[in-house]
Design a protein around this nucleic acid. Sequence first.
RNA 1: GGGCGCUUAGCUCAGUUGGUUAGAGCGCAGCCUUCACACGGCUGAGGUCGCUGGUUCGAGUCCAGUAGCGCCCACCA
Length: 847
Amino acid sequence: MSNPLTGSPGVPEKPSLEGLEDRWAGTWEHDATYRFDPTATRAEVFSIDTPPPTVSGSLHMGSVFGYVQTDAIARFRRMQGWKLFYPMGWDDNGLPTERRVQTYFGVTCDPSLPYDPDFTLPEEPGKDDIPVSRPNFIELCERLTAEDEQAFEELWRRIGLSVDWQRTYATIGDRARRTSQRMFLRNLARDEAYSSEAPTMWDVDFQTAVAQAEMEDKEQPGAYHRLRFDDIEIETTRPELVAACVALVAHPDDERYAARFGTSVHTPLFGVEVPVLAHRLAEPDKGTGIAMICTFGDITDVTWWRELGLPTRSIILRNGRIADTPPPGVPDGDAWRAIAGRTVKQAQRAMVEMLSASGEMVGDPRPITHPVKFYERGDRPLEIVTSRQWFIRNGGRDEALRQRLLERASELVWHPHYMKVRFDDWVNGLNGDWLVSRQRFFGVPIPIWYPLGPDGEADHDSPLVPDEARLPIDPTTDAPEGYTEEQRGKAGGFIGDPDVMDTWATSSVTPQIACGWEDDPDLFAATFPMDLRPQGPEIIRTWLFATLLRSHLEHGVVPWRHTTINGWILDPDRKKMSKSKGNVVTPMALLEEFGSDAVRYWACNGRPGTDTALDQGVMKIGRRLAIKVLNASKFALGRLGDGPVPGLDSVHEALDVALLAELAKLVEGATAAHEGFDYARALELTEGFFWSFCDDYVELVKTRAYGERSAEGADSARATLAIALSALHRLFAPFLPFVTEEVWSWWQEGSVHVAPWPTIAEVGPHSGAEPAVLDVAAQVLGAVRRVKTENKKSMRARVANLTVRAPRAVLLDVDAAREDIVDAAGVDNFDTEEGDALSVEVELADD
RNA sequence: GGGCGCUUAGCUCAGUUGGUUAGAGCGCAGCCUUCACACGGCUGAGGUCGCUGGUUCGAGUCCAGUAGCGCCCACCA
């Protein structure tokens, strides 16, 4: 090893962790330590598709957990020589931001308004929300999120993420909107995107359609109501939908109803004639085995309606209320008037009263709990309404595409591997194409217009698309090519699509946004397909799936080589942490209490994919480790003396050779663990070595290193200390970037984070040596300590006589470390005798 | 209802392809005010590896079943 040491002027008298974050984060920024090298070629690059955190909320420890793990991976790869492409995005596109902007600024978005470039907010908020155009609304969103993003970046810098801060993007920014719209237009051109008027899941509060991936089941109280359709009894949890009933259905093999297939019955109260039909999805075990089909009570209704070619009798409006006028075929009588205009709940009560009174309800409602579909952010159950929506084909209705996507996912290396099952389950369970349009404002607009015929009707089958060079556009304020703004909404003119895209429609192109697809072909060629996608398990079905889908459709490749799926953060009661439960701890408080390295230590202790408890005890240990690195480094560097540090060829003492052999095993093990993305294992191995290095090896050689025995012995110890210390600083660097940079700066040039990762070659010919000498010496030392402790003596107490009994082979090892043991244990007289097993007899000197 | 994961010392977790007396830290107990570290150090006590079977010379590790917990998914009759 070369000798960069010129004394140790950099070692402070009293090393401390305080202030390291600010100092080194500033230095890294100033020195552009983590800047991407734009001249790099694909073969040299390791690129990471970092999850853009949602900036509309506050960061919590769950985010820190995953990002720090990824950073440890990134730092290892960087030291291995890869040129890191490690950008950071902000997800500021979507409902949470929209809602915050509305309340924060007191505005409401009205897409029909024209853009007002001179818009300013009033000094004092008025009583009513101010209506603003969509571009104005987006400006306000960007204004609010910019502040949040600043705070986020500060936290990320403080926790030591080695991202290239010159390469950030926001999912509502121009670049992201352009990329997202371009991808949508490409999908449209290949007929992978299409619009259709169809029943869709609808949130009556948010007033928007919802995709399968955004839905979740919630257990809700409900009740079975047994209703009489002439002589047939059915059971339903939704009696309010009787007016929407279009048929009854039973299983084709159900003998109870076989004779009735093809006949008809009358709905209670309304007396509408509906057919009795057979369908394989009807379950004989549920209720009475025969169900009423309504348009639409649930997704099965939609299936039956479609496959059995039934008419439509929709009664629920988009606001969640019953329509004022009955659907075709339903009489506008007393029964209808009792439910018209009411909410679903009110209508149900009214129906139950009327059905009881008419005798068409058998017995009392039977309370149950059952799963009901909700929008993941919603408070009321989803309804199904018919509306025009945009879809992207995702294999949900295309077996061949489904299979190709499953194959693509197999090209990805999953860490841990079993997480892939979640992807497969999701793809195999898809029941329709991806609904990407949302009836919201703050999002990436669907870049489409529709021509208006002479009658003023929009022609949805011949959408007008912009030239890609114009992107991003907003069809509610920009006019299509060949038209002028005056023609908007006029017969013979055009109308813009009012909807925005699902947030995942933009999130699913993060590789393309980050890598500069079409905007920067050189960058794209150097970074895509990317090397790593780290993310949480809960968004495999959304973010990972959608990204893979769009990369497959556009580029015909899997977008990354590896994906790491992190685990959950659990609170001390082992419950998943979430804001709603109020058990979220803010990261900054912990960073201030324990220091960034300590919090990182905790995060990196979490095994890949494994749920981890938020444990301040582990952070405490991380802090202790960081302090130990400071002190041990100071001490070891102090033993190196003032002259040049001897190199590898000075190592000849058996104990030193043994230490280097152990070190080689550590380097080998930690490197292999890292290569398999198991940062936690690498940390564990390094930490284990480090503590025994401090407790045993350093104690054994500290006297010899001073040169009190011989110059050769001192040189051997000094060379070994320097080699081990250098390797340890680098092995710890991915986990404890601040303290390792600090100690590295005491005696080395440049940043430890761009220093080469340690190799076995550094310990040269000693990598295969037997480490037994160190092990035996440590055992003897431990035995002496035990006796001193038992006799309540200081560790400095002298040993009058030390006798080691062991087999001949072991005695050779003991002899090899004899002088070091004598010095470290404070021995006056040292004897060895042959014996069966290693045993140590200690006779302490008198006080 | 289907799938995946977890279950090892009081607590938080390791335990790589089955191999000798099962590991770490915290906590606990005791000792040492040591000249790198009291934001310390040393030493020690503590576990029939969820349960039941099976394979094997040998199982925390493999197989089958089972219980509890967590997560994901599923057409709300």
